[in-house]
Nucleic acid binder design. Structure first.
Lengths: 218, 218
DNA sequence: AGTGTTAAATTAACGTCGTTAACTTATTGA
DNA sequence: TCAATAAGTTAACGACGTTAATTTAACACT
């Protein structure tokens, strides 16, 4: 159990395995329920070793989140090929929601937990780079729709529009994550809620007659 | 400093002062950042005394939340007098958002933090009672609008509609609370985001031509 | 071959947390 | 007068995030 001098590669390997262990536990049980000791035990190291790779729990969390922002963004990126702009927005929303609902603890730590404002230089992603930032992608499509003149004419700020669409989808997902198990609310099926949100939002933002086919309600 | 036998009233007074101290600290610094010892110190008791009034920190939190659900609901209730149904929905949304943004830590613990599904019998409110449950009020107005035939004809489930409106407003508020300080997003003013959300949502849900005056954008 | 330096890890410890057990004190009712 | 009880306290347990001090092994150089 004593140490060897490690190559850059080995060092990185350990760093990655710490990240993986942390993610696994965070996702499974939530951030606060997981201790540094536990993460360490999972990879057969002592807790102090983690502190040689990350300044503290917060920094470790940030690093996990960074990776996941990238993963989310790259998932979205595939959908950006769709020719129809409106369909692209819909697919972005759907992909985003899938991610949120399939990884609720993940989503929670990424978008539902206030943190020290994204330590600026510490994280090296999400600068509006379309490949790394899911929000930038939405912004990009919305901008195109805006330029095509498809939005209502009284709407002048395409960034505001993008933020509103994001908020709508996020609202459905985060309510589901936070209160989806509450018995006192007679929730409609999550798929219905997502679909109506998408639909109402676009109907409300686009010029009439809307360029979307309203799905038939069963 | 030894004790006396207390009347029911005295006992209740202490209970209330625990609740007040807990609320003050929770709201100011967030739930996890506040310890039981600290709450106790604030009212000059030992930490163990809190456990004679509340089973544990979770129960204390639940009690604080209960009171606040009531406060929120009664705030909303005043607005239910408005004659115009659509204006009533708008006012409900605005009041809800004001509460969220003025008490972000409160809002966080009420609507952004997953908890054990509302311990059923432990909390004695929010059973759809219009006076105690803000969501029930929204549901009620939406139902009336539905009965008046103002929604799009392909929308058949008024509860689904209410949940979508809730999710929209919640989305704007909770994104603001969780990520409002993030520098990498060029946020539009929160008032604009709220207004566009309300507006787009209603435009998208109501029959066209919509029964709302679209506010002129400056 | 021996020796110092340094990287990589460990054990031990500090202070804080939620919570519980054991104890103290003062009032009450028989 | 004296047990029972209510309302508090202090002390302690085990777990947490984190840091200090220490150990071990590999290298660089003589």
């Amino acid at each position: 159990m004593p140490p060897k001098i490690k190559s850059e590669q080995d060092r990185d390997k350990l760093r990655v395995s710490i990240l993986d262990a942390a993610r696994y536990l965070f996702v499974q049980r939530g951030i606060d329920a997981v201790s540094m000791r536990e993460i360490a035990k999972r990879i057969n190291y002592s807790a102090t070793t983690l502190y040689h790779h990350f300044a503290d729990k917060e920094a470790l969390l940030q690093a996990v989140c960074d990776e996941d922002f990238l993963k989310l963004a790259s998932g979205m990126h595939q959908v950006m090929q769709l020719p129809d702009l409106i369909e692209r927005i819909q697919a972005l929303g759907k992909g985003y929601a899938m991610f949120a609902l399939q990884h609720p603890n993940h989503y929670r730590m990424m978008f539902m937990t206030p943190r020290a404002p994204c330590n600026q230089e510490i994280t090296r992603i999400q600068q509006g780079n379309t490949e790394q930032d899911a929000y930038a992608q939405l912004k990009h499509v919305v901008q195109k729709v805006f330029e095509a003149g498809l939005f209502r004419e009284d709407l002048a700020d395409s960034e505001l529009i993008a933020q509103t669409i994001w908020a709508g989808i996020h609202g459905v997902c985060s309510l589901q994550i936070a209160l989806g198990q509450e018995g006192w609310i007679h929730w409609a099926a999550i798929e219905e809620r997502l679909e109506l949100m998408q639909d109402a939002m676009l109907q409300g933002l686009l010029k009439q007659p809307a360029h979307i086919a309203v799905k038939a309600e069963k």
